[in-house]
């Protein structure tokens, strides 16, 4: 492993010796990483390498899987998120997530965005402002401001995904996790989302899982390469792509497997 792991400035997420099993099958092996604040960190690696599993440890989405068992330490802002007395609801408010396929709720665009703020008790009179702000932040406002009450399913796939990003932002998280957010989208929609993600790092810490190495190279500041449940290499994106320290990293990014 490269020394970059030890030398990240201003880490917001710190993971130490994380091991994860689905039943008997170990999916993550001794993963340690420090993810810096207000930057974009990309996880790359072939299918089944554990990158999606890993990202789901950061907002405890793996809790939903009964057979899943976790050992190790994950801290966000110095607080162990698997520690006793941690409220998963608060954690997920702090760490938002955007999924592989757009998953808007079967309600209006407005209600989709207002869903999170409503359950977290935002005032009725502030709600409209929150919704507009979230839609503007997701660069969606100008396209849809005139039909905010129409069903979310009436939007295109790319718009739906940006709606899901806006929905996540409306809860005011500090960290946003993206689990292959563009894999179901066309190139133009993908470009829009990439641009959006790069703009978002001013205000959020972004972690993105991607299949697409060019995407990682384009938008991320740091890149982590996973293989068979292990974190093989982590460092500045430029260094990983131009001068990888490990043979397997080089093989993967040059397309020799994956």
């Amino acid at each position: 492993m490269t020394e970059a792991i030890q030398n990240v400035a201003n880490p917001q997420i710190e993971v130490k010796d994380l091991n994860l099993w689905y039943g008997d099958k170990q999916a993550l092996k001794n993963v340690s990483i420090q993810i810096p604040k207000n930057s974009v960190t990309a996880f790359i690696g072939p299918s089944g390498c554990g990158k999606s599993t890993f990202i789901r440890c950061l907002n405890r989405m793996n809790d939903l899987i009964k057979s899943c068992r976790i050992e190790g330490e994950v801290s966000i802002e110095g607080k162990d998120i698997y520690g006793p007395g941690v409220d998963v609801v608060d954690l997920r408010k702090q760490v938002g997530m955007v999924f592989q396929k757009p998953n808007p709720f079967p309600m209006s665009i407005y209600d989709n965005i207002a869903y999170g703020p409503r359950i977290h008790g935002v005032n009725k009179k502030d709600l409209e402002g929150v919704v507009e702000h979230a839609l503007r932040s997701a660069a969606l406002w100008d396209e849809i401001s005139d039909r905010i009450r129409s069903p979310a399913f009436s939007l295109s796939g790319g718009q739906q995904q940006r709606l899901c990003i806006a929905r996540t932002m409306a809860v005011k998280p500090e960290i946003i996790l993206f689990d292959e957010p563009c894999s179901a989208l066309d190139p133009i929609s993908t470009a829009k989302i990439e641009e959006l993600i790069m703009n978002l790092k001013k205000d959020y810490t972004i972690v993105i899982v991607t299949h697409n190495m060019q995407q990682a190279a384009r938008i991320s500041d740091h890149t982590a390469f996973f293989l068979m449940g292990e974190l093989i290499e982590f460092g500045k994106t430029r260094q990983i792509f131009e001068n990888p320290g490990e043979k397997s990293t080089e093989d993967y990014i040059t397309g020799r497997f994956g």
Binding site: R92, K93, G96, F105, Y115, I119
Partner: peptide, 19 residues
Amino acid sequence: SLKQGSLALGATRWQTIYK
């Protein structure tokens, strides 16, 4: 995916079911 979307926004299990 809908339920996960709701839970990921910090909704409780019951809020997810109900809303």
